[in-house]
Computed example of a mutant assay.
Amino acid sequence: MKVMVFVKATQNSETGVIPSEQLLTEMGQFNEELAKAGILLAGEGLHPSSKGVRVKFSGTERTVTKGPFTPAQELVAGYWLWQVDSMKEAIAWVKRCPNPMPGDSEIEIRPVFEAEDFGELLTPELREQEDRIRAQVETRQQE
């Protein structure tokens, strides 16, 4: 199963405080462990929400709002995409993770939808389209 692992933001990450060299080293070692275990598919840290925007949809209208956004603890400061055997395995890996922020912090784990989760709604045509898109993405990543 694929899971998205969200590192929740804090006041420090939202004000642009850069992690210490020690934390960067510890996280680099953790990421190496994930890669060696074949779990890590992707992962990045995110700039503070002050550098982002939100696009609100209401019918055909689109409204763009510039950051920052609040409350900080409801925002995402970084993420990983992992391939694991179970939620239990994902939890075990998160428990091994260095604390990603100075002070208290939180990590959220959510399953990623897989094609079979949609059952009959995913028609053969939609499945073919999904396969084509995934192949295009993989080709670009290999370039």
Score class of each variant (00 low, 15 high):
residue 13 S to A: 02
residue 14 E to W: 01
residue 43 G to K: 01
residue 94 V to F: 06
residue 23 L to T: 09
residue 87 M to N: 07
residue 36 K to C: 10
residue 6 F to L: 15
residue 86 S to G: 09
residue 94 V to N: 10
residue 101 M to F: 14
residue 112 V to E: 07
residue 16 G to K: 06
residue 112 V to G: 02
residue 64 V to D: 12
residue 73 Q to F: 08
residue 126 L to D: 02
residue 60 T to H: 13
residue 123 T to A: 09
residue 21 E to W: 00
residue 118 F to N: 13
residue 60 T to Y: 03
residue 18 I to M: 15
residue 58 S to I: 09
residue 67 G to M: 09
residue 92 A to E: 15
residue 30 F to T: 05
residue 24 L to Y: 03
residue 65 T to K: 03
residue 106 E to A: 13
residue 41 L to S: 05
residue 13 S to I: 03
residue 42 A to S: 06
residue 105 S to Q: 13
residue 75 L to W: 04
residue 57 F to V: 14
residue 43 G to I: 02
residue 91 I to E: 14
residue 64 V to F: 06
residue 88 K to L: 13
residue 46 L to V: 10
residue 1 M to W: 03
residue 21 E to N: 13
residue 90 A to P: 07
residue 110 R to P: 08
residue 5 V to T: 01
residue 62 R to M: 01
residue 5 V to D: 08
residue 22 Q to C: 03
residue 119 G to I: 04
residue 34 L to Y: 10
residue 101 M to G: 05
residue 62 R to K: 14
residue 53 V to G: 06
residue 120 E to W: 05
residue 20 S to K: 06
residue 12 N to V: 11
residue 111 P to V: 01
residue 62 R to D: 07
residue 115 A to C: 06
residue 32 E to V: 06
residue 105 S to G: 14
residue 25 T to Y: 05
residue 44 E to H: 12
residue 30 F to I: 11
residue 60 T to P: 09
residue 37 A to M: 03
residue 50 S to M: 12
residue 89 E to G: 06
residue 46 L to S: 07
residue 129 Q to Y: 13
